[in-house]
Computed example of a mutant assay.
Amino acid sequence: MAETDSAPTVVRARGRSAGRTPHKGQQTKAAIIDAALGLASHVGLEGLSIGAIAELMGMSKSGVFAHFGSREELQIAVVREYHARFERDVFRPALSAPRGLPRLRALFDHWMRQTSLEIDSGCIYISGAVEFDDRPGAVRDALVDTVNTWQAAVRKAVQLAIDEGHLRADADPAQVAFEIHGLILALHYEARFLRHPDSLQRARTGFDNLIARYQARP
């Protein structure tokens, strides 16, 4: 990330000038993506098809094809939309916290909250990794791009905490970010698959323990 406080955007959100009403075609395309994202959250990216979306939207297949020329193009649009919403709900709110450890903690809190909201649906980053981990192609590339961008943002937040003197100078940002990501993956598994009611608190405790290990001492 070139700028410290900028959001980790891979693909710019659909640009709209202030006060300008979106074209009907843009509105329809946005509605299709929204419906496809909702469906993919439950059945995965592989569960998406032009036919299923057409039925869901009450449109003809050719109507959906007019906006997305292929199933792959629709899947990529869903990945990018998920990333844009993840950025909006997790990353951007954390920027209002002071630089350093407060911001890193806010980032983790928002990430945990997002994970808890996805317990009854699913995380496109996680389900997509399972579906496309060994399948090269444009959809996998889009997933890798968005996840790499997000992980770079977490590493940057850790680096800021080091720069501010909140974490030890010898702390490895990549290692700290790796451990934070591990907590989120464990939370998702324990809460969504095992339905353990104390998963959220355990993730919080895990983060506190992690920070205690890396925290700078007076």
Rank of each mutant, 00 (worst) to 15 (best):
A129S: 11
L187V: 09
A30K: 00
A203N: 07
A174T: 12
K61I: 08
Q201L: 12
R80I: 03
V144N: 05
H181L: 13
V78M: 07
N148S: 15
G182K: 09
L167R: 00
I124F: 03
T205F: 04
R105G: 11
L37S: 13
V147L: 13
I124H: 03
R195H: 12
L74P: 06
T205E: 11
Q151E: 11
I162A: 00
A161D: 01
H83G: 09
K156T: 13
G69N: 07
A84R: 04
D163E: 15
A157R: 07
P93G: 11
K156R: 15
E72I: 10
G25V: 06
K156Y: 07
R71L: 06
A191N: 09
L194C: 05
G19S: 05
E87S: 05
A36L: 10
R204V: 09
G182M: 04
S116L: 15
A35R: 07
A152S: 14
L187H: 15
G15Q: 01
R20E: 14
H188A: 12
H110Q: 01
R202V: 08
A169T: 10
T149D: 06
R71E: 07
T115A: 14
Q75R: 15
T4G: 12
R92M: 14
D133I: 10
H42T: 15
K24M: 06
H181Q: 13
L37C: 14
R105N: 13
G58E: 12
L39G: 03
T4P: 06
R213W: 09
V144A: 10
S6H: 08
A138E: 15
F68N: 03
Q151Y: 15
A2D: 14
E55A: 14
I184K: 08
L107M: 10
I126Q: 08
V79R: 04
V144F: 07
R71Q: 01
H188F: 12
L183P: 00
D198W: 03
A161S: 09
A129W: 01
V154M: 08
G44C: 00
H42C: 08
L143T: 00
W111F: 12
T146Q: 02
L107G: 07
G58Y: 14
I124Q: 03
I53A: 05
E55R: 15
M1H: 10
I119G: 01
K24Y: 10
M57F: 06
S49V: 02
G15D: 05
G137R: 07
E87C: 09
A212L: 05
D34N: 10
L48G: 01
R135M: 05
A54C: 09
H83A: 15
P102C: 12
P93K: 14
V139Q: 05
Q151C: 10
G44Y: 02
V130I: 14
G165I: 09
Y125V: 05
V147W: 08
H166M: 07
T149W: 03
